[in-house]
Design a protein around this nucleic acid. Structure first.
Lengths: 127, 127
DNA sequence: CAGAATCCAGAAGGATACTG
DNA sequence: CAGTATCCTTCTGGATTCTG
């Protein structure tokens, strides 16, 4: 059981509450479409803002900055500003970011693997 | 690279477009906080509507029905209605649902494992 | 080029009441 | 009890403009 308590097997009972609430925050930040697509897009590469935008289909300028800020704040991406003109800003996944990316990959593979089943289920449901 | 094209190594080029667009739909459905929490809550168990609600902290009646419908439509949960009065409806993960749950577990573990790093990154960022 | 700020239309989501 | 429908508020997110 995970939702009454998102974390498992935590020792201290006193710190458990805030750890769990922190975990919920992080989960909410991370369990969203754009964040996951950005992480997947970055992969092992270092990309500029505009390059990331090119990779993530349909994302707006605003959503991209917003999500990149959030990911940076949580230490999932590293943001490197080159003090040139015009500016150049590069984004790279950190180690935790790359670790999370592995699970995003898993979701993508899951999606691909179950495409047929899902399409069938939809047709049955919509009828 | 995954976002220009979410799927990899697909054979037919003709069907690739719609497969990829279907994959995007599914990804959007599934990559959302409530859906993932519901999947995690269900786990290996069969739960009634009200029980699921009890397990997923903070979810409203409306969000729960909406997401359960969506999950059922995509064939991730099985919905069994007992024609009694008062009604009793039970939800269970299907095989694809359980497979996805494994990746949700991975995200939970990732969260737990990187709590410290993230908390530190936040403090640095917020300063 | 990257991004901050503003504006605003439309979607998300909560509360409530009603039905089988 | 489970589910639908309605209302109404909040928030999301796009378009646009402005700056270093």
């Amino acid at each position: 059981m995970v939702t009454k308590q998102l974390l498992k097997d935590l020792p201290e009972d006193a710190d458990l509450r805030r750890a769990d609430s922190l975990a919920r925050e992080i989960f909410s930040d991370v369990a969203n479409k754009w964040a996951l697509l950005i992480i997947e897009a970055l992969g092992e590469r270092t990309l500029r803002f505009s390059e990331v935008r090119g990779e993530v289909e349909g994302i707006s300028h605003k959503m991209l900055t917003q999500n990149l800020r959030m990911l940076e704040r949580n230490g999932l991406v590293d943001r490197k500003v080159h003090p040139t003109v015009p500016p150049k800003v590069e984004y790279t996944l950190t180690e935790p970011g790359r670790a999370l990316r592995a699970t995003v990959d898993a979701i993508c593979q899951w999606t691909q693997h179950h495409l047929g089943h899902i399409e069938g289920a939809r047709q049955r449901f919509d009828a």
